[in-house]
């Protein structure tokens, strides 16, 4: 990735920029990057890799819009240095869908109208993915708890929660080999089997 610096003459010669080489995996693809240590993971993802689905909202560790998965765990990418990704595996929203199919979470957000402006959506989906990977049968309360670090200023969260429960139903149905259209027309889906 090319970074251009202000030439401040003697004060900070361009040769003083401390670059480090890191190797990491993002959405299944192995990458090598040269980064300045102060580069944030969010910027490596957006600018270095051109994956602009990761959004920077508050930039102060509050909103969760920049959430990605690092080794399967939800992390705020504005609050982690890019150099710290060395040797780790990152998943962004671009890693959810395949070429032909939306991820059940993405489908759920469409089916249940889980977004309005859409800015918080990628972070919501990745926090939700971490939840569903750990707990395939979440209750509504589990979902609300898992998403409590992701802020949405449009929806009031109701449909986001429904979307995640829709995706959980779909993933379970697919896992059971039934593969049907889960939760369609039901919309509640909340806490029916209560295992957590």
């Amino acid at each position: 990735m090319t970074t251009v610096y202000d030439d401040r003459g003697e004060q900070a010669a361009a040769t003083d920029v401390p670059l480090r080489r890191i190797a990491f995996t993002i959405n299944g693809a192995r990458k090598i990057a040269e980064v300045e240590p102060r580069l944030l993971l969010a910027h490596l993802i957006r600018r270095g890799l051109g994956l602009t689905g990761t959004h920077l909202g508050c930039d102060t560790t509050n909103c969760g819009a920049c959430t990605v998965l690092v080794d399967g765990k939800a992390v705020k990418s504005c609050t982690m240095l890019a150099v710290q990704a060395d040797g780790h595996e990152i998943t962004t929203v671009e890693g959810l869908a395949t070429a032909s199919e939306l991820h059940p979470l993405q489908e759920g957000f469409r089916q249940e109208h889980g977004l309005q402006c859409g800015f918080c959506t990628p972070g919501m989906m990745l926090s939700a993915k971490a939840l569903l990977d750990a707990n395939p049968s979440p209750t509504e309360e589990d979902v609300r708890w898992a998403l409590s670090g992701n802020l949405c200023r449009c929806t009031g969260y109701q449909n986001i929660v429904k979307s995640v429960l829709w995706a959980a139903d779909k993933l379970r149905a697919a896992g059971n080999g039934a593969g049907g259209e889960p939760g369609a027309g039901d919309g509640s889906g909340a806490g029916e089997d209560g295992s957590s």
């Binding site: 560790t61 969760g64 959430t67 765990k73 939800a74 992390v75 705020k76 609050t79 982690m80 926090s127 708890w145 898992a146 998403l147 409590s148 670090g149 992701n150």
Partner: peptide
């Protein structure tokens, strides 16, 4: 403590 995402780190 904080929120679930912060608690992961």
């Amino acid at each position: 403590i904080a929120d679930p995402i912060v608690r992961n780190r």
